[in-house]
């Protein structure tokens, strides 16, 4: 009951913000929700399932480019393009997962990095279909159900994608699936002896979170109505990793808090230090790994214990 009211309360706040914010603040809110959604998915994959997959942003891009190319280059109706793009993400994720989840740690990171680079090459060299380095623009989602496809109405779509992703992953985390993922992260051989199908579970975790990243990409595609290859490069990928580590690896709330902190910090810091805020992030990440591997959520747990709260 408490969990349900927390969910409803959180949703109400997000909906209220979506409907009241406008201009730059609304844009910032939409982008923040998108980053937080990505981070929650990446945290499940990296923090809970233990897979350091550098392909998360590439799947975000596949979802975004997929829906725009299908709907506006190939002229599919939007609902069909959305379904098509989800299927493309799912199938590619499965094809990447089957060989690469046999790898561990560093080697998985390398293989998924290679895939991310391949994706970058494809969209840069995609000619008229992907728009090459200029990207794609000049398209817009049609109005559906009487909702305008921009402004507060569209922010609600992003709020829905964020809440859906969070709800799916929190629910799975608290089931046999989440426990199996954590067990594999900790000790694959022991997990297998307990009856966990290690290979299938890893492939499922990768495919699911990558497809959710694709769905987030679709939501992004109609946020600015402009796609650029730069948005789907390696820098945002490493930002996701930093957000997860600073927030608290393996913690859903940590992913949201880390995403909010690192996404909003440049807005504040840029006035003082210009583009050098990345340097600050680097120091913060090193400090987190050295002194607080459990991240901000670890600090929060420690504080709760100290003040005797449960």
């Amino acid at each position: 009951m408490r969990a349900l009211s927390a969910w409803l309360g959180g949703a109400a706040i997000l909906v209220a913000l979506a409907l009241t914010l406008d201009g730059y603040a609304a844009d910032l809110f939409r982008k923040l929700l998108l980053v937080a959604t990505l981070c929650v998915g990446f945290n499940f994959l990296f923090g809970i399932a233990g897979q350091l997959a550098i392909s998360h942003i590439a799947f975000y891009g596949i979802g975004a480019y997929g829906v725009v190319v299908l709907a506006f280059q190939f002229g599919w109706p939007l609902p069909l393009a959305i379904i098509g793009s989800i299927m493309i993400c799912g199938v590619i994720a499965l094809l990447v997962a089957i060989p690469s989840t046999r790898l561990e740690g560093f080697f998985l990171a390398l293989a998924t990095l290679a895939f991310a680079q391949l994706f970058s090459v494809v969209i840069l060299q995609g000619g008229d279909v992907t728009g090459g380095p200029q990207g794609l623009s000049g398209y817009a989602a049609p109005d559906y159900f009487g909702l305008p496809s921009d402004g507060g109405g569209y922010t609600l779509v992003i709020v829905a994608v964020f809440l859906m992703t969070l709800a799916i992953l929190v629910r799975l985390d608290h089931s046999w699936f989440g426990r199996a993922c954590r067990a594999i992260r900790d000790n694959p051989a022991t997990a297998a002896a307990m009856g966990v199908d290690v290979f299938r579970t890893k492939v499922a975790a990768f495919t699911l979170t990558s497809t959710l990243a694709g769905v987030t990409g679709m939501a992004y595609a109609f946020t600015d109505n402009y796609l650029s290859p730069l948005v789907f490069g390696l820098e945002p990928m490493f930002m996701l990793l930093f957000m997860t580590v600073i927030g608290g690896t393996g913690r859903h709330a940590g992913a949201v808090i880390g995403a909010a902190l690192l996404f909003l910090a440049p807005e504040v810091l840029e006035e003082w230090v210009g583009r050098h805020y990345m340097l600050g992030f680097g120091v913060l990440v090193v400090a987190a790994i050295l002194f607080q591997p459990a991240g901000l959520m670890g600090l929060w747990d420690g504080a709760r214990r100290r003040w005797g709260m449960r």
Binding site: W176, R179, A180, R182, A183, D186, N187, T190, A191, M194, G195, V196, G250
Partner: peptide
């Protein structure tokens, strides 16, 4: 399985 409670460890055993 570290970071998990005893009960959750047993629930992995019950997978």
């Amino acid at each position: 399985f570290s970071g998990m409670t005893l009960t959750d460890n047993l629930l992995v055993g019950a997978h």
